[in-house]
Computed example of a mutant assay.
Amino acid sequence: MAEPAPGPRVLLVDDHPMFREGVRFTLTRAGVPVVGEAEDGEAAVELARRLDPDVVVMDLAMPGAGGLAATRALVAEGTRARILVLTMSGEDTAVLAAVRAGAHGYLVKGVGPDEVVAAVRAVAAGHAVFGPELAGRVLELIAAPGSSSPPAPWPPELSEREREVLELVAQGLSNQRIAERLFISPITVRNHVSHILTKLQLSDRREVMLRYAARRDP
């Protein structure tokens, strides 16, 4: 029997050693290797350059350069690593700032170990992930008047089905949920999402949410 594929390589960033130890144990036990650890934003950026992780699990509140500055720096450098925020604050301003900075997911500390593992895997697979208490609020914040530029118009180059999928991706639904809503297979949804990202020259679902979340109907 073939061995299961290794999990995404993770860089863990948090200024509390005991917390890092707990997250590291949770991830490695689930087959997700932690390839490096940092206790501040500057070290995180340097290690990400060196280690080329798949996912950076990032705290926001740290001494010196915090996680928000580190996220901006990594995104500005064009890192391929996807950034999952795992922090204490669930306040709207912190969540929206992280999303605007380039985070692909946001969890509040205290979530269960299984949720952390699932979020890391989902973010690595290209999904935008937010804790259940945050998902609806994130969309509301992105779509709120004055929170961003006017929503982009629905792109005419997409097929009718692709526009349906785009609308549901913009609402934060997973491929499975979209498949159930549209009565198609998850594989078909995945193919539609791939075509949408290519046609719109967007890199991931987070960018779809930022650009189209304010739209609710074609």
Rank of each mutant, 00 (worst) to 15 (best):
G31W: 03
D114A: 15
P153A: 10
V35L: 11
V165T: 13
V95M: 12
R50V: 02
T26Y: 05
R215H: 03
A152C: 02
H195A: 11
A143Y: 15
R121N: 11
L200V: 04
E39N: 04
H127A: 14
A119L: 04
R137K: 12
H104N: 13
Q176Y: 11
F183D: 08
E3K: 11
D59S: 07
E77Q: 14
G67C: 00
S89F: 10
G41W: 09
E21Y: 14
F25D: 15
R163D: 03
F25M: 14
E207P: 09
H104M: 05
R80C: 03
G136T: 01
H104P: 07
M209P: 07
T79V: 13
A98G: 15
M58T: 01
P218I: 03
A152H: 07
R49H: 14
P8F: 14
L27Q: 15
G22N: 08
T93C: 06
S174R: 11
A103M: 04
Y106Q: 00
E42A: 12
P113A: 10
S194T: 13
F25G: 15
V13T: 07
D204A: 02
I196H: 07
A125N: 11
R49F: 04
G126Q: 09
A98Q: 02
A144E: 09
L182A: 05
E46D: 02
R211F: 07
N175A: 12
V138K: 00
R206M: 06
D52G: 04
A94V: 12
R9I: 00
L27T: 12
F183Q: 13
T87K: 00
D204C: 07
W154M: 15
A119H: 08
V123P: 08
T28L: 13
S174M: 01
P6F: 14
V45P: 10
R190F: 06
W154E: 15
A94L: 04
L27P: 15
P6K: 10
A135P: 06
R9C: 15
I187K: 09
E140G: 10
E46W: 00
R163I: 11
P63N: 05
L60I: 15
A76T: 06
V57K: 00
R163M: 06
A103I: 09
N175F: 12
V193R: 12
E167L: 13
L84K: 05
R100A: 09
L158C: 06
A118Q: 11
G112L: 12
E180F: 11
E207T: 01
R50F: 12
R82Q: 09
L86C: 13
V32R: 00
L47K: 09
P156E: 13
D52K: 06
V85S: 01
D114H: 10
T87Q: 02
R216G: 08
A98M: 07
D54W: 00
E115S: 13
